Simulated scan of single mutants.
Amino acid sequence: MSSSAPKEPLMNDGLDADPPSKRALQYVLKKKEDGWPVAGIYCGYAPLELMHAMGIVPALLCAFSKVPIESAEEVLPANLCPLIKSSYGFIQEGTCPFFTAADVVVAETTCDGKKKMFELISELRPLHVMDLPQMPDEDGAVGNWRRMIVRLKQFLEGKTGRSATKEQIEEAIVWSNRKNRLARKIFEYAACDPPVISWKEIYDISFLAMPSTGPDIVPLLEEKLEKLEKRRSNGEYFGARGAPRVMVTGCPIGGDATKIFRVVEEAGGLIVAPDSCTGIKIFNGDFAENTGDPMGAMAERYLKIPCACMTPNSERMNALSSLIETYKPDVVIDFILQSCHGYNVESYRMARHVAENHGPAFLKIESDYSNADIGQLKTRIEAVIETLPAKAAVN
């Protein structure tokens, strides 16, 4: 940090004045106008590099609002994960513009609830479900996922008339690596004390950059990196000096689920590491370049994403340790969506790993997209913060 006196905490400026959802929709619709087919996606396992190489634009489908859940529960059980209910409700009500624009949908077998939901939406759009190997360390797992990527390519060729050479896929991988490295450099400004970037900016960048691979997003990330370096040189920062640093891990967080970030701030905490597949997790690691087998390179890289659907999920523990060492949180919050059994059960191992190997306090929170539990969440988070040693709360 600069030796000059820090300025008042900054207001978030994002990548620009427009909300990320608006900017993402403009990007998708412009690509569609230019003749690109649109592939709706839900998950970080979707091989984006293949789609971009084929001239197909990926679009993240709507999934993070409480509004369409009541409609979804006319078909789906009430005790299902809110992310799944929200996803289906948007489609049932016809209120997701990304789904409206989608020519096809690409899905993965990350959980049983999603698999059954995909069966329902397959009646509305051509849909391809990729059978995700969930024991990534087993012999044959990478080969099986490579076959799934090849089959996806065949599906997309048949439904869109687009194809891609090996060289075009290799080029998309190179661009994707460049994007991911830039994103990681941007996120590391949150490791400063105090952080130079806010959680809102990290979330906005993740939302825009996750599906966008190639030359489209790279200039924006480079511009953001320059702005952040200027902030750091000027001694500008976010939050209050000495505020408890908080890492939020667990289920995907977006839309109404970002209440957890706001509650943490209201309780006096400072979000420094929003670790989920809608945050910094999806940008970790690089693809092997110019191997002569880009399909295999994609398969190997994607299977390293440490989602709780994987077993044993040792990669998540390793990633957690790396994040704690980099961002130095005082508190780790494991955010679990109701009825997400994979993340819920895995939370026990997470708590034990943090206690045995690191110093932060650990708090498991189970919630949904409603605001009914905000008061309770604030009370629990405040209680954890109050137990922190004085040196962790005061600089």
Rank of each mutant, 00 (worst) to 15 (best):
V150S: 10
T160G: 10
R23I: 07
K31T: 05
N177I: 03
E49Y: 12
E73Y: 01
M11V: 15
P215L: 15
V345E: 10
I84Q: 11
K185I: 00
A63D: 14
P252Y: 02
A101M: 03
T379I: 05
L388E: 15
K32I: 00
I333T: 00
A392L: 07
I333L: 06
N344I: 15
G268R: 06
E356S: 13
Y327R: 01
V28H: 02
I260D: 00
L80W: 08
S21P: 08
E73N: 13
V106A: 07
G161P: 06
P20D: 06
S276D: 13
G342I: 05
N12E: 08
P294E: 02
K328F: 14
V67E: 12
V218Y: 06
T258N: 13
T326S: 14
G342R: 01
W36Q: 06
K85N: 03
Q376N: 05
S163C: 07
A39P: 01
V246E: 02
P58L: 10
D330P: 13
T379W: 11
M51E: 09
A59C: 03
R23Q: 08
F155C: 04
E93M: 05
P136H: 03
E188W: 05
V218K: 04
D131L: 12
V394W: 07
L132S: 09
F64M: 08
E171H: 15
V394C: 15
E201R: 09
P244E: 12
D139K: 13
K22Y: 14
A53S: 01
K85T: 02
M210K: 05
E123K: 15
S176K: 09
Q168C: 09
M310C: 06
P306Q: 10
L60W: 08
Y237D: 13
K391C: 14
T165A: 11
K7S: 14
K230F: 05
L363R: 03
Y42W: 09
M295Y: 14
F238V: 06
A392E: 14
A209M: 01
V331D: 04
K224Q: 13
S87D: 07
S2L: 03
W36M: 02
L228P: 04
E33Q: 15
T100P: 00
V106E: 05
L377D: 02
Y27W: 07
V272A: 01
P6N: 09
K391D: 15
T249G: 07
G214Q: 13
P215C: 15
